[in-house]
Nucleic acid binder design. Sequence first.
DNA 1: TTGTATGCGTTATCAG
DNA 2: CTGATAACGCATACAA
Lengths: 343, 343
Amino acid sequence: MESVTIKDIAKRCNVAVSTVSRAINNHPDINPETRRKIMKVIEENHYIPNNSAQNLKKSVSKTIGVVIKGADNQLFAKMRPVLVEGIAQYDYDSDIEYISISGDEIREALRLVKEKRLKGLIFLGGNHNRTEEDLKAVPVPFVMCTVDMDETVPKDLYSSVSVDSYQESYRMVDHLCSKGYKKIVIFSGSRGDESVGRLRLNGYRDALKANRIEVDEQRIWYSQDWAEDVFSMANGYRMGKKLIESGIDFDCVYAVADSIAIGAGRALLESGIRIPEECGLAGFDGLDETLYYHPSITTMRQPVKEMAEDAVKILFSMLHKGEANQHRVFSCKLEARESTQKE
Amino acid sequence: MESVTIKDIAKRCNVAVSTVSRAINNHPDINPETRRKIMKVIEENHYIPNNSAQNLKKSVSKTIGVVIKGADNQLFAKMRPVLVEGIAQYDYDSDIEYISISGDEIREALRLVKEKRLKGLIFLGGNHNRTEEDLKAVPVPFVMCTVDMDETVPKDLYSSVSVDSYQESYRMVDHLCSKGYKKIVIFSGSRGDESVGRLRLNGYRDALKANRIEVDEQRIWYSQDWAEDVFSMANGYRMGKKLIESGIDFDCVYAVADSIAIGAGRALLESGIRIPEECGLAGFDGLDETLYYHPSITTMRQPVKEMAEDAVKILFSMLHKGEANQHRVFSCKLEARESTQKE
DNA sequence: TTGTATGCGTTATCAG
DNA sequence: CTGATAACGCATACAA
C-alpha cells in the first residue's frame, strides 16, 4: 500500500532526490549515465511522480487548459484533437478537463489555473449569461468557443469564436422557403431557452417574414423542459409524434439541432410521411449522422475545425503578442441534402 | 495573479489556518459562529482550496475512481451517471477521469490511486491483453466494464461485468439465419483485432455452421487499419460501397458495431437496395441511433444500466465485505427491428 | 555534475 | 473549541 516516492528511488540509486528530479524532468545538467541508471530503477519500481506534488511545487508551466462542457458533445469531440494539436504547435501542453453540463466552467477554470499554473484557457461550451465579475475573475487569457454570450456582456472581457445562430438559422429557413416550403414547423428548444434555441427561433421568424410567410404560432413547437434531454433524438421523436397527432398542417420540419431532426424524421417516416416529397426536414449543427441518414438530412454545418484552429490562434496572439480580446464569427456551411430536395 | 490561499483567509479572519481548514472540511469541533464568519470571507475573496495540496496532504478519502477510455463512447456515456449515482448511494464520491483511446488506463489508475487515495476503481473500456503484472500492480479493488479480457489472464486478478461477445454475436447471426438470410456479409473490425471484433466474427462463423451455411471468406470483410476510425459510420459507408462494387452476392449485412451498420445502411439505400426486402441489416451494441434510423436497425443491446449498477455492487462487496473478485456476464437484448423484417 | 535545504498549500496531530 | 507545527512529495536555488 505504501507507494514508492522520489525518495525511494533516490535511495535505491544512491543519489539525492534532486538528481532523480533532474532525471525525470529531462534536465540538461545531468550525467547521461546517471540518468539512464535512474530511469532504469524508476521503470523497475513502477514509480510514477505524484502529480499533485509536482503541481504544488512548480512555479511555471507551459500548458493551456481546455474546459469541455459535456463529454458527449459531438461537436466538441471533433474540436478537441484540433485544439490539442494546435496548442502543441506552439510548444505548449494541453490539459483537458471535462465538466458536466450543469457544472460551473469558470469556477473550474479558476481552480485549474491556480493548481496547474495554466497560461491560458479555451472553453468549449458554457453558460451564456456569465456576469462581468465572473469573466474578470479569470486571470489568464481565454477564448470561448460556441457560446452565444449575452449582448449585455462587454466584448472586451473575453475572446470568442462562434457562429451567428440567428443569422445562420435565418439562412436555413430562407433556403427552405426557396425550396417551396410554406408551412414550416420549427422544433425549438425549451421555452425558457435564451441561448441558441432562442436565437435560432428568432432567425426562423424573421426569415419567414422576409419571405412574406406569416408566422403561425401553432407551428412553433417548444421542447418540454426536460433539461439534458432537450437536444436528443428522443425529444425530436416525441415532438414529431405529437405534431402529427395535432392535425396541424405542415410541409416541412426544421429542428434547431440535428439530433432533434433525426428523431423527428423517424416519427414522420414511421407515419408514412415521405421525406422530402410530403414533408421537408432540416437540422442544425452538421453532425455526421445527418449524412448517413436516409434520406440524408439538410443541415447547417458548423465549421468546427476552423473554429478550433482559430481559437488557438487568438489565444496565442494574446499570450505572445499581448493583443486584446478578439471575436471571430464563422459562417456555417449550408448542406442541402436529400431531405429538402422536393422535386 | 497572486492567488489567495488558506493563509490569506486565516489572516483576514484573525484565526489560525487550522481553523480555516476545519471550516472548509465541515469539521465537527468548530464553533458554528466562527465557521460562518470564515465561510463568508471565503465567499468574498473567491477562495478555492488548492486541490493538489489537499490531495497531497489527505491521508484518507472516500472516493472511487472511474476511468473512462474514450470520451465519446456512447455506451460509456450512458453508464457514467448510473455509476456516479450508485457510488453516491454508498456515500462515496466519484472521481471521473477520461483517457484517450490510446492511453494506458492502468498506469493512469495507478497515478490516481496514489494521488487521490482512491478506495476502488471502475474501468470503462480498456486493453484486453493486460499482463498479470499490470493487474497485480493495482493496489485497490477494481471492476472492469465491457472489456473482453484474454482467457489467459487469471480470473482471480480482477472483477468484471461484461457481455459474451462471441455468444451474443452467435445469437444475432442465428437470428438472421432464422429470418431466412443465407448470404450474410459481416463487416468486422480490423484484421489484427483480437478483441470484440474477433470474438463477434467467431460467433458469426459458428452460427453459420450451426445453420449449415458454408462460411464464405469472401463475405467476411475486415476494416482497414485506420485505428480510431474503425468503429465509425464513415468506415461502414466505405465498406458498404466497396461491397456493392465487388459484385459479391449477399442478402444481409451484419456489422459488429451499430455505427458501422448505420454507414453501411446508407451505402445500401443509396444504391437503391431496399432494406429489409432486398438486404437485411444488423448491428451490435444498442445505440439509440439504430432506433431512429429508417428503417430501424436490428441490434444487440448491451444492458449498460444493469452492468453499471452491478459494477458498483461488486466493487463495494469487495470493499466492505472483503469478498473475492467476481465476474458477471450479462445477456444482451436482441432488438429485432425493421431492418430484418423480411416479409 | 551532484547534493542540501527550503517551501509550495493543505491537513492532522498535538497542546492549550 | 482553537492555535502552532510537522508532514505530504516534489522542484529549485544555491552550495559544493
